[in-house]
Each structure stands twice: as structure tokens, then as C-alpha cells.
């Protein structure tokens, strides 16, 4: 049984990475979108405006959230439409293994690049370099939660024809705590205060999400066949 679970997890993960390598535009889109949005904030503000550094945590967090939403709609839709999802649910290994692999792949291909990109973009906005670790740590803890919540919402809407419009409306209200504490950690570090408390809170939300949402996502996808 355990061998089947690991086999299914690695098979799905390898397939996702292979698909990403074949359709590069798909996973290059979120980082490019992120860079463009943050750059536009810089261009829209007064030259060398010191206020931009104050707003940097909010700009970076909102930019990263919107960028990560771009690839969410496709997360399960293609597999639902071509019948792969049926094979995943029929297979002897529990479907949770395959679904967890899909969620992990979404974070690896979307959330992780965004978390890594945030530091250079923050520096460009004049964000103090001493506070960069807190910002990056916050994003590293927050983007997996976004993949989990977003994956759940994508699973709920997989059978709907125009889910692309509905998805941000479902996901964004649910991720407000992530933005509050993620940007809060960055702001605390910016003003020289300890950022541990908001980071611990983000870690707690991540653990909660990891223990609940993969199962909820699997149940929502199974429901899509009804």
C-alpha cells in the first residue's frame, strides 16, 4: 500500500514537471506578471518616493497572490476534461496521493519562484535589505497555503464552465489572514521589530492547511463526477 502511494505521488509529480517543461509559457506567466505589476507600482509613484518602501510589503504580497491565481484554473481542469482524473480515482492507490502531488507541483512551479523573486523586487522598491529574510520567509510559508486554498477552490469549480471569473472571488477572501500576517512580518522587520510572531502564525496556518485541505480537495474532485 505504502509503495503504491509513493509510486502514485512520484508519477503525478513527474508528469506535472514534464508538462511544465513542455508548456513553458504556462509557468513563466506568474513570475513575469509579478515583475510587471511591481514595476508598474514603481513607475506610477513619484521618482525615489520613500513611501514606496513603506508600501512594499503590501505591493509584493498582493502582486504575488494575484500572480499565483493565474495558473490555478488550469490545475485540475485539463485532467478533468481529458479523463485523467477518472483514472486517478479508479487507481488502487488512494487518490489523495495524486492530488497532493498536483498541489505540490503547483507550489513548486508557481509559489516558490514568486517567493524567490520577491527579494530582488523588494530591493528595487527601496525595501531595507535587513528586513528581506522576514519577507522571503513569510512568502515561503504563505505561498503553499495559497496553493492549498486555491487548489481546493479550483476543485470545487472544476465542472463549472466559467470558473476563471469565480475563482479569485472564492480564493482572495480566504487568504486575507495570510496577507495580514505575511505583510505584517515584513513591516515588523522593516521597523526593526521582531517578526517571529506573525511568521509562527503563518507556519501554524500552513500546518492546518496541510492537514485539512488535500483531503477536502480530493473530496471536492470526487464530487465533480456526480
Amino acid at each position: 500500500m505504502a509503495a503504491g502511494v509513493i509510486g502514485a505521488f512520484t508519477a503525478v509529480l513527474r508528469r506535472e514537471l514534464r508538462l511544465a517543461a513542455r508548456a513553458r509559457a504556462e509557468w513563466l506567466m506568474p513570475p513575469l506578471f509579478f515583475v510587471i505589476v511591481v514595476t508598474l507600482f514603481g513607475l506610477g509613484a513619484k521618482p525615489n518616493d520613500p513611501l514606496l518602501a513603506d508600501f512594499a510589503p503590501a505591493i509584493l504580497w498582493v502582486g504575488a497572490l494575484l500572480a499565483a491565481l493565474l495558473t490555478l484554473e488550469r490545475l485540475f481542469r485539463a485532467d478533468y476534461e481529458d479523463g485523467t482524473l477518472e483514472q486517478i480515482f479508479i487507481a488502487p492507490a488512494p487518490a489523495i496521493a495524486a492530488i497532493a502531488a498536483k498541489l505540490s507541483a503547483h507550489w513548486l512551479l508557481t509559489g516558490l519562484p514568486l517567493a524567490l523573486l520577491a527579494a530582488p523586487l523588494a530591493a528595487a522598491l527601496g525595501f531595507p535589505s535587513a528586513a528581506l529574510p522576514a519577507l522571503t520567509a513569510g512568502l515561503a510559508l504563505g505561498t503553499p497555503v495559497l496553493s492549498l486554498i486555491g487548489g481546493f477552490a479550483a476543485a470545487l469549480t472544476v465542472g463549472l464552465p466559467r470558473a476563471g471569473v469565480l475563482l479569485p472571488l472564492l480564493v482572495l477572501p480566504l487568504v486575507t489572514p495570510i496577507v495580514i500576517f505575511g505583510a505584517g512580518a515584513a513591516r515588523a522587520a522593516q521597523s526593526g521589530l521582531p517578526a517571529d510572531a506573525p511568521l509562527y502564525f503563518l507556519a501554524a496556518v500552513l500546518v492546518l492547511g496541510l492537514t485539512l485541505l488535500p483531503w477536502a480537495t480530493t473530496a471536492a474532485l470526487r464530487n465533480a463526477f456526480e
Partner: peptide, 10 residues
């Protein structure tokens, strides 16, 4: 199923 469960890019 009547769907082939083949990803067209692979």
C-alpha cells in the same frame, strides 16, 4: 471511459 485519459501535450 469515453474520454481517453491522454494528455495531448504528452
Amino acid at each position: 471511459g469515453h474520454k481517453n485519459a491522454l494528455n495531448l501535450a504528452l
